[in-house]
Write a protein that binds this DNA or RNA. Structure first.
Lengths: 341, 341
DNA sequence: AAATATTGATTAAACGGTTAACATATTTTT
DNA sequence: AAAAATATGTTAACCGTTTAATCAATATTT
């Protein structure tokens, strides 16, 4: 791999001139003849700029670090992928690269620390939440990332106290399928959550309770079941609850995948969706569209959230320091998996 | 952000000692007392190593560049995500980061060029194929990447002539659902392809033709339809073919998403799957498992392919230069969407 | 013809971290 | 007690690129 020095030697000029030309092809500080000689040399010597050296010199890398404090494999989760897709779309149009870090750690804070260890030099960060963390862990993560002194945006981390750039997906803390099902006349509604622990789970449980009780329905702890955002586990959880609570008329699922699994479970228990049991999903993923019957779901607008996060960060990188909080709200997509009672 | 120099000044020693200790906590070249002083300073000054400076000095970045020559948004495609997940899993356990580059270009070669422009300094690359490219474009891409002089692995790029590291997903060039359907007694089989153009499409069409004719079935060009790997388009393509070729008894789909869409189309045309029409998918994604009926599909083992690609590259980065070709083969997953005739 | 601009280059010092080579003090060995 | 080994540091060059500060030659203005 050739360097600027070699180009300079090849052409017979100083490295400075090469750098100047390469960074601004219209520069008046390099003569026309020299310019074409440099072009020639670049081709002849296969020159590619070393971004790291360049970043070091300019103190700007045009690289954004993506911090996802999870030990699960990446790119396997519908939510995360949609978010990432939005982020990438926006970053890409502004010429920014995305860097994903490795981590061998087992706890959320450790992961963030490890990832930041390898990251100083990025122009900014996007910090993902993961359903696993406790509020305290999240707060520690944020302090950790603040220490870098670089701009960052938290994505989908509820009730961050500090005044920082953040994008919130309103629907994530909200079991908004519940009031919809209530409005359709349902009174025996099972809530199919993802994780047991973590901030999101707590929010959702509270939310469910509030909705249920204001509707004058008795709250039953056993109406909350868990599917770990996994099709197989959701399937068996639903099968179980169908036995233990046969009065159930609706299932409110925290992901479309779990909703699709729920439908399978309902059907294979000899009932039909939506006539016997209604099912509502979340995320408006392809799964919701393709299921039979197609699934009524809540579009969290995660792609938009990703775009907004990238926008916010890019602003912050440009020096706009006033902390902003962007709230993305969900929209109900009515399809065929919910019937009125 | 503090530097090694500041740490050194804080402790009252030379930057070299700090660097030596930070890179090897057990180094005998730094005294125990000094070690703890450095630790203290690191915390006090919020030191984070600048990877770029470090990469520059060591000529090793522990960053792998991921080159995906597509203008579509990333992280939206089942295949690509599974592959990426495999790659990330392996790279992460060996402490490597993944870098995704932006691109504004419109052609595959331009994209690769642009991305490499921003990438020199990576320890290696993984070059994805995308169904869009022609063989010539692919070859140009490879020359382009070879010019960097860094190790690289091509992923899922069929018949690469050069002797380079490569991982091939056998099933991708093969319409292996066809012989299976034939063996089940089907003779009027529609092939639902993704893209019209590109290498893969050509391979698949040939493959289909070969299977069909050796089975003694007359080849009909109209039996090949296109769904662009998109649920909506696949749905309408299937609806159409059900009209134009009512004798159809089976549909061989090149993705599970298209298979799920096909099932919808079949059902909404008043037929049942698999009794009237059999459907086979590809990729063994969640869609195949969750559809009703669940979809018989071909698992391409893409995750394994990702792992292998990462392995290969890591070997190459370590100086193992003998080019290897790894072939990942598919496995049939029988479920409920195919019936015998 | 002197003063002023313009053009096309160069020099040298960063950026932050690494590392081979060298230096000094302290222990251990003989 | 001298020689050898060990422990603990330091110096200084280098990685590849950028950029403020200069400089020299040529062109333009007055």
């Amino acid at each position: 791999m050739s360097s600027i020095k070699e180009i300079a030697k090849y052409v017979g000029i100083s490295p400075a001139s090469v750098s100047i030309y390469l960074n601004d092809k219209n520069s008046t500080r390099v003569g026309a003849k020299t310019k074409s000689l440099i072009d020639e040399a670049v081709l002849a010597l296969n020159y590619h700029k070393n971004v790291f050296a360049s970043s070091l010199a300019t103190q700007e890398s045009r690289i954004i670090g993506i911090i996802i404090p999870t030990m699960l494999p990446l790119f396997q989760n519908d939510y995360t992928n949609t978010l990432l897709s939005g982020i990438q779309t926006r970053l890409s149009t502004f010429g920014y690269s995305m860097l994903f870090f490795p981590s061998s750690a087992k706890s959320s804070i450790e992961i963030v620390k490890e990832q930041l260890e390898k990251s100083a030099g990025c122009d900014g960060y996007i910090l993902f939440s993961t359903g696993f963390c406790t509020m305290e862990q999240i707060r520690k993560n944020i302090t950790e990332i603040q220490k870098t002194g670089r701009p960052f945006v938290t994505l989908n981390i509820p009730s961050v106290p500090e005044r920082i750039h953040q994008v919130l997906i309103e629907g994530l803390e909200t079991a908004s399928g519940i009031p919809f099902l209530v409005s359709k006349g349902h009174r025996n509604i099972v809530l199919l959550l993802g994780r047991h622990a973590g901030v999101h789970a707590r929010f959702l449980k509270n939310d469910y309770k509030a909705y249920i009780t204001t509707a004058g329905i008795e709250y039953d702890e056993n109406s909350i079941i868990y599917g770990e955002y996994d099709a197989v586990r959701a399937y068996s959880a639903v099968k179980e609850v169908l036995n233990s609570k046969p009065e159930t008329t609706a299932i409110c699922c925290m992901s479309d995948i779990m909703a699709a699994a729920a439908i399978k479970a309902v059907q294979e228990s000899g009932h039909t969706v939506p006539d016997d049991i209604s099912v509502i999903g979340r995320n408006n993923s392809l799964h919701a569209m393709l299921a039979t019957p197609s699934i009524t779901t809540i579009d969290l607008n995660m792609h938009q959230a990703g775009l907004s996060a990238a926008n916010l960060l890019l602003d912050a990188v440009d020096g706009n320091t006033a902390p902003q909080k962007i709230i993305i709200s969900g929209t109900l997509i009515e399809r065929d998996s919910v019937a009125a009672r």
